[in-house]
Nucleic acid binder design. Structure first.
Lengths: 344, 344
DNA sequence: AGTGATGATGTTATCGGTAACATAAACTGG
DNA sequence: CCAGTTTATGTTACCGATAACATCATCACT
């Protein structure tokens, strides 16, 4: 049934050359005469030969792997970043080895350990919070690292991210500008989603800096924060603080869940309550009303990350690394426009 | 800077044993005395030793890779299936090698070719449409394959999927039951998204079987079909056939875009026009009104796929393979409830 | 024609593990 | 207490490619 896959030696024999010549013929930019290259190509096709990377990796000490960990697959923001990475890497012979941590540092450690055995040429992780052992593993590996989606205090290597706290602050400023005073936050489990927590921290700090109460905080369960979580949290928010005027949510998904829950309860958005999200998902644009959100250029983070890596690996020319800091940008939409309320 | 990573030989020397004993000590279920195992473990930790899979793969002819291709990362349905696969594989020493085809058969071929070099132990592809060369490559590899999300006429190996045509038919029957007569479809580029096309085909066939006109078809651009595409398509639908009573969309995302566009145009859903989607995304549940959709148990597809593979690889006991056919299930919601219209 | 540069190909020695077999030590039961 | 088995460990021979160096022909130009 399975008559053993042909090896390079088989191809070499069939073409009447040495394996070294076959090896060369199968790569671009190597000196092999057109004639023999054709001959070898034909022999390879006839045999159905497929190169064995394991062997190539071992011999050349290059695997072509880039290890990437993201918290969740089912999150369009991280998916956008991943897409940015993969698309930028397309064309090079680098391949992404993807793992998702489920927002757990221990799981991240497990993944990184597993990945390091594959001898990746570069590592991309999400966020700046890691277990001590994980930091050590990555450090020892001597492989270029990029931390994304955050601005870690003790970076492991390169960073392409943004200040999550700034994103929270940005929204508070917007709310205040719009004249809202009783402002709440939905999202942020205490231990896992450190980035969401940072946004909440920035949010709280900004409220306090403006002399406003920062107690209307509804912590959702552990991530991923779903629309349902957003909806449940909004219900809790309204039960506990019925006079809340504006709510920022940890993600656009949560914001949508929260907003529709409020609407189902008979509230008008933004007249009765304003809702904002984070992430600039398409959802926020199409929802009715359109949801105010913070854009952090998820895909761009991926593109820059990959670019940084290509530079670090000497695979892309240019001395200037791309700007590593992404600036969160507020997109004001109808869900937080207070004009209606004021005029009514 | 990089003093070369320690090898198994280094660990063996440090622990005063042979490399073979080290190799055994690092795997479970191998006979090594507790004492030496501890000694080796300590030596390995002290040296910061990390096993090199490339070498292990070459020698043992096992890579632990499962190659998986999905059309798009940014699609929550495929992401769910992927999660089902990854989660089910967790615990085994199999690792997913993920690629996305961008709905292109040529890209799929390119990916599969790239993946085969890594000598995966199993392959998972989405759908049953592949290039001839791709079929050949997979066939020659002698590796177990699972095709998902479809019921191919000429399967390459195992199948875990559903009839996309049936999903389209299901929705038509629901529309008819609700008393709708002028029914349209949004989505389906002619060449790329074959599954979306199958849904449309089933949809058209069912309309005709019921003696209804099946001409209200708005083809979106090439996938991925975004909310924006859904919105644009709805506008075209309404321009061309203003009296349309119900519309099925190729995905929930498209349906949401289409529905909100109709609402922005002043139409009431479902009173003025009914909208339905596909995929049972959380979005459809939370939207206002909640959107009628077809549930195909995306995650379950992934779980079953992984289970089939584990069986095929002899890594899971049990002779009975899981049912490979998933039955699309209609979830009727407010967006297609005609009661309001009839009563008005 | 001679000499060095260039291009095409072959030879040899690994890369870092593991399978398979061999061996030595410890244990079993009558 | 010994033959027979089990357990722990070592030896040897690769797995399938590629790096590095060697070789040999060809070509250009003085």
């Amino acid at each position: 049934m399975k008559p053993k896959a042909p090896t390079m030696a088989d191809v070499a024999a069939a073409a009447g050359v040495s394996t070294m010549t076959v090896s060369r013929a199968l790569k671009p930019d190597t000196s092999v005469s057109e004639k023999t290259r054709t001959k070898i190509q034909e022999a390879a096709d006839a045999l159905g030969y497929v190169l064995d990377s394991s062997a190539a990796n071992l011999s050349s000490r290059k695997t072509g792997f880039v290890a990437v960990t993201i918290p969740s697959i089912n999150n369009s923001n991280f998916a956008d970043t991943l897409r940015g990475i993969v698309d930028t890497l397309r064309g090079t012979d680098l391949q992404v080895l993807l793992g998702y941590t489920d927002y757990s540092k221990d799981e991240e450690e497990r993944l990184i350990e597993q990945f390091l055995r594959r001898r990746p040429e570069a590592i991309v992780v999400t966020g700046g919070a890691h277990t001590e052992r994980c930091r050590r593993l990555i450090g020892n590996s001597g492989v270029p690292v990029v931390e994304t989606w955050d601005l870690p205090e003790m970076p492991l290597g390169d960073v392409v991210g943004f200040s999550n706290a700034a994103a929270g602050r940005l929204m508070v400023e917007h709310f205040i500008e719009q004249g809202y005073g009783k402002i709440g936050f939905i999202g942020g489990d205490t231990s896992r989603d450190t980035r969401g927590l940072d946004r909440r921290r920035g949010f709280v700090a900004a409220l306090e800096a403006n002399g406003l109460a920062a107690d209307r905080l509804v912590a959702t369960g552990p991530p991923p924060i779903t629309m349902r979580e957003g909806a449940l949290s909004m219900r809790r928010m309204l039960d506990r603080w019925p006079d809340t005027e504006a709510v920022m949510c940890v993600s656009d998904q949560a914001a949508f869940g929260a907003m529709t829950e409020a609407q189902r309860a008979g509230l008008k958005v933004p007249q009765d309550i304003a809702v904002a999200g984070f992430g600039a998902d398409a959802l926020s644009e199409h929802a009715i009303p359109a949801i105010t959100t913070v854009d952090v250029s998820c895909e761009e983070i991926g593109v820059r990350t990959a670019t940084v890596l290509l530079r670090a690996l000497g695979l892309a020319e240019g001395t200037l690394a791309p700007e590593s800091k992404v600036t969160p940008r507020l997109i004001a939409r109808d869900s937080t426009t207070n004009a209606a309320r004021r005029s009514s």
